[in-house]
Write a protein that binds this DNA or RNA. Structure first.
Lengths: 124, 124
DNA sequence: GATGAACGTTACGTTAACTTCATGTTTGTG
DNA sequence: CACAAACATGAAGTTAACGTAACGTTCATC
């Protein structure tokens, strides 16, 4: 596989802008691409996977700060972590929040259905 | 019931700041409280209910613009609306978006559970 | 070896949803 | 009536998450 990907290809394949990639690098959410002499950065498939994951989490409504807290769990090896209890409690916290939000959204969905029914009934 | 509520009480009972109430009034999301002579605004329970609904929808991730589009449906009579087809398609669009988001969140929830399982298994 | 597309860096601009500040008016309680 | 708490209004500041502009460098291909 070709592991010499520049920022343009990385951005295009992840469906984000170049500016976004650089912004994520600047805040440490994405690792800097290796610079090979000339000044240009080169990226790997791993970075692409991570970038896509970040984008996915963002669409769920997580802020970049929140994403920073959880995205590593997709890529790190748990056996190397010292404070597993802390990580676990963080994960459980996010799980509770997520499930709570699912419930609220389901209620909103039901309300929308009610409104739709009301309006549909007006056509009879 | 006492229907002479001023902005402080309204804000406090809806768990938002006074500034937020005024901001919502300024962008037309909340009706202006009636001014009784002196310049101060007085609000009703209806406004409080509306304000709470706005806050609830905001927590679901809707923007104030989006809230403006749907919040009226909680309080108006459908039979009085002229462009019912338009409203219906709008509501169906929000329903689809919401259900989509529920699905994605459920997937995220499952992923979180997987990670938690991983970490828990490390303690054995 | 020229030349256009892609890249790098710095800095200012933008939008949403407010907050903070400044300053003046109204209310209500002792 | 004094006086603090609550209210009104306007303008400027804030944060997140980038977008846009300006300007110089590098890559690749003809």
């Amino acid at each position: 596989m070709d592991n010499r990907m520049r920022i343009g290809e990385l951005a295009r394949r992840a469906q984000v802008t170049i500016r976004t990639v650089r912004y994520y690098e600047s805040i440490g959410l994405l690792p800097q691409g290796m610079r090979e002499g000339s000044g240009q950065h080169y990226y790997t498939e791993d970075t692409l996977v991570r970038l896509r994951k970040i984008d996915q989490l963002k669409k769920l409504g997580l802020s970049l700060d929140e994403i920073r807290e959880v995205v590593d769990f997709y890529f790190i090896d748990p056996s190397g972590v010292q404070s597993k209890q802390k990580v676990l409690s963080l994960l459980r916290q996010y799980l509770a929040q997520t499930d709570q939000k699912i419930n609220e959204l389901q209620q909103f969905s039901a309300e929308l259905r009610t409104h739709i029914d009301y309006f549909e009934r007006c056509f009879t």
